[in-house]
Design a protein around this nucleic acid. Structure first.
Length: 429
RNA sequence: GGAGAGGUGGCAGAGUGGCCGAUUGCGUCGCCUUGCUAAGGCGAUGUACCGGAAACGGUACCGGGGGUUCGAAUCCCCCCCUCUCCGCCA
């Protein structure tokens, strides 16, 4: 959420920002919010004056008696009746304002490229060389099924499409990746967290997924709870409603959790294999720090680097892209995606997504801190990035490190989780 | 699931219809005393909104929402959360 003052003072910038994100309907919310705000500010002085009168009169009342009291009482009743209509109006205006304001997207930062969708994201870095196989590389699902490592048919039978079951060494590799990711981040000072997977609407709203992301979310209506699509939701919400002290910041967390996504509206997209699935495991890094743009930028670089270090340890070629306006979400100010080379896609596929929000989420979450040398409480800045999401990350691992006979070379960094083996699988091709 | 207790300022904890935006303690900040450490004395210290250049003035907020009343932290209803006991159970 943006400060209403920002809307008042930089109306054009906010409107342009929404348009840069290709959200014209959300840009309209800016004008609606400002209109309601104007109405409210017209109403408030009158109403406050009446309240003031009621208050002081009420105090005098306590000392009165008899006929004098009766007369006073009549007058106060009349005032009350008059106030009721205005208070009703105030209530509705405030609720409407809140609603429109919550629709206004965060301002995209200056380093967000112009563009309509993910085809216009801008590559900022490329690392590693794409391997020359010397044979026709197979897609991960062919290798996986031939090895008996993955079963899509039975998964679909019991749970529907976009599901999978991992077996044997691939199940171990899946776990290895996640363990490596957590250990890497713990070494770097991040506090490991095992968060709730079912959360209230407030957490979804606070992180900016609601309103807007309801269709993407599995919901347990009976309990009013939502299955998280990322642990960003519970972990960023962790200190929601709290007043932290500057000394407690930055908070750096790493969470491993299951994630659930309905993938509504993606029919026919990435239907084969492990790329787009309803349920997966993800290790996520989350940072909460003071309201300082320079520090946010530094954190953003750091969390991207953390993910890059993991990919380098996995010996995978990747590139970093600056996500353009049209591909940016409502709450983000700027986002880098990391895309890892996937031979079956003959291209790079998104494996990581690093966002900075400044105070947009914190404002929605009521997440503040008290400054060291006095002054007003400030809203925190928040950021997050994937460390590893699996099974998606298994795609480049299987496809880039496959050998002609269908066995898999295990990167050195992961061998220790697989009993020290350098190769897994048996010759199947 | 059943029974009970409770949710108040950064924290702890009083307050049962007008004298309460709220006693007090802790913490924090400033000053003073004491020559260092420690301790003590005095004062200040909530958040948000509206108006104002500012000084300042006004309003709202005692878990959330409704209600009673001229007036609600205080009374009534609904919801959420925490704790204790019982039951059930991974």
């Amino acid at each position: 959420m943006l400060d209403i003052k920002v809307l008042r003072e930089n109306t054009d910038a906010v409107r342009r920002g929404a348009l840069k994100k290709r959200m014209p309907d959300r840009a309209a919310a800016v004008d609606r919010a400002l209109q309601i705000d104007a109405e409210l500010r017209l109403l408030l002085p009158t109403l406050d004056g009446m309240r003031s009168e009621q208050k002081s009169a009420g105090k005098a009342m306590g000392k009165l008696a008899g006929a004098e009291r009766e007369a006073f009482l009549e007058k106060q009743k009349a005032l009350k009746a008059e106030m009721q209509a205005l208070e009703e109006k105030e209530k509705h205006l405030r609720a409407d304002l809140q609603q429109q304001l919550s629709l206004v997207p965060n301002l995209p930062d200056d380093d967000v490229p112009e563009g309509k969708d993910d085809t216009e994201n801008v590559e900022t870095k490329r690392h590693g060389t794409v391997r020359d196989f010397g044979f026709e590389p197979r897609p991960h699902y062919e290798i996986g099924e031939a090895q008996g490592w993955v079963d899509f048919t039975r998964a679909a039978d019991m749970a529907g499409s976009r599901n999978y079951i991992l077996f044997g060494d691939l199940a171990l590799l899946h776990d290895a990746v996640l363990r490596f990711a957590v250990e890497l981040m713990v070494e770097r000072g991040f506090v490991p967290v095992d968060p709730p997977l079912l959360v209230r609407d407030a957490a979804m709203f606070g992180t900016g997924f609601f309103p807007g992301g309801e269709e993407q979310t599995y919901r347990c209506e009976k309990d009013g709870l939502n299955l998280i699509g990322t642990s960003e939701v519970p972990v960023t919400s962790l200190h929601g409603g709290e007043m932290l002290t500057e000394e407690q910041l930055p908070k750096k967390y790493v969470a491993r959790s299951a994630c659930f996504r309905r993938e509504a509206g993606t029919y026919g997209k990435d239907t084969r294999g492990l790329y787009r699935v309803h349920q997966f495991q993800k290790v996520e890094q989350v940072i909460v720090d003071v309201a300082d743009r320079a520090r946010s930028l530094q954190h953003h670089r750091d969390i991207v680097q953390n993910a890059e270090d993991l990919l380098q340890a996995f010996e995978l070629p990747y590139r970093v892209v600056a996500v353009c306006g049209g591909d940016l979400g409502v709450p983000q100010a700027m986002k880098y995606d990391i895309e890892t080379w996937m031979p079956s896609r003959k291209g790079y596929g998104e494996t990581h997504s690093a966002s900075r929000f400044y105070d947009y989420q914190a404002r929605r979450l009521d997440l503040r801190y008290r400054q060291k040398d006095g002054g007003k409480p400030m809203y925190c800045h928040t950021l997050n990035n994937t460390v590893a999401a699996s099974p998606r990350i298994l795609i480049p691992l299987l496809e880039n490190h496959q050998q002609k006979d269908g066995t898999l070379r295990v990167p050195k960094a992961l061998q220790r989780y697989l009993g020290g083996r350098e190769v897994i699988g048996r010759p199947v091709f």
